[in-house]
């Protein structure tokens, strides 16, 4: 298996990326934690009074901030892996043109790098939870599964669009806009309960709605996620990854010519 043979390269690429961010800026990879947390702070500051009373099932004065952090943890993983997969082939064009190596390494490196950043954020978030007096329940143990699922979903969608983006560069411009839309149709900042009932069923079409709600279940409300609801999301992630693989195989002969 090519990934195994090139494990040293993959690992050193991920670590190099991480190290480089510290070389280029003093706080380095910590900025990957500071950005989402600042966003949480801003939303918490502006919206906490509007939202605070509408969060049932949790007894903590900082409940809204906790809710925000759980959702942001999920969303930032999805958004980052999607954005980086989108430009993966274009960013590595030079490498692909000049050196023959198993191309599968590239998405693995991306996924690994994003995961590393997200784990840093997770550690920070859990630390803040404890400081705020919110102790996660045993259901926290489900989180690795949810992280894997979010990663697979973002990687699948990102790679499908990433392969097409090499040929149709408009996709690269359009996807950030799409991500903005999906963000606001995902209950990260608000509670799904504030959406009128007859609109809420449409929200369920957004796989990220299901994902973020599962994060909320595990991190905020301390209960088991809705596995039946997550099953279609898992299937979608698999289909997207499969599709990405097929597209990549088909595109490979011509991809380098277009970079």
């Amino acid at each position: 298996m090519a990934v195994w043979r090139f494990r040293h390269f993959i690992l050193s690429s991920i670590l190099n990326d991480f190290k480089l961010r510290f070389i280029r800026s003093g706080l380095g990879a910590l900025w990957g934690v500071i950005h989402p947390l600042m966003q949480v702070l801003i939303f918490a500051f502006i919206l906490s009074h509007v939202m605070a009373n509408k969060l049932p099932g949790i007894d903590n004065p900082y409940s809204y901030a906790i809710y925000l952090m759980a959702g942001t943890l999920c969303w930032s993983l999805f958004a980052e892996v999607m954005q980086r997969s989108l430009t993966l082939f274009i960013d590595n064009g030079n490498l692909l043109k000049k050196i023959a190596f198993p191309r599968i390494s590239l998405p693995v490196i991306t996924a690994g790098g994003v995961l590393l950043n997200n784990l840093l954020l997770l550690v920070s978030v859990l630390f803040i939870f404890v400081v705020l007096g919110h102790f996660p329940s045993i259901h926290l143990l489900w989180l690795p599964l949810l992280i894997a699922l979010t990663l697979a979903l973002g990687l699948g969608a990102g790679l499908v669009l990433g392969v097409l983006n090499v040929f149709l560069r408009d996709i690269g411009q359009f996807v950030p806009i799409l991500l903005q839309f999906v963000y606001w149709f995902t209950p990260v900042v608000y509670m799904a309960t504030i959406i009128p009932e007859h609109y809420r069923q449409w929200l369920a079409l957004n796989p990220m709605y299901t994902m973020v709600e599962a994060y909320h279940d595990v991190l905020v409300f301390g209960r088991m996620p809705d596995w039946w609801g997550l099953l279609p999301v898992a299937l979608l992630a698999m289909v997207l990854l499969g599709l990405a693989m097929i597209l990549f195989r088909k595109a490979s002969p011509e991809m380098v010519d277009m970079l």
Partner: peptide, 18 residues
Amino acid sequence: NQDLTGRENAFHTAGLMG
């Protein structure tokens, strides 16, 4: 990579060669 040292780049490139 312009920001890495020669040694680190050597490691990386040799890794790329498998």
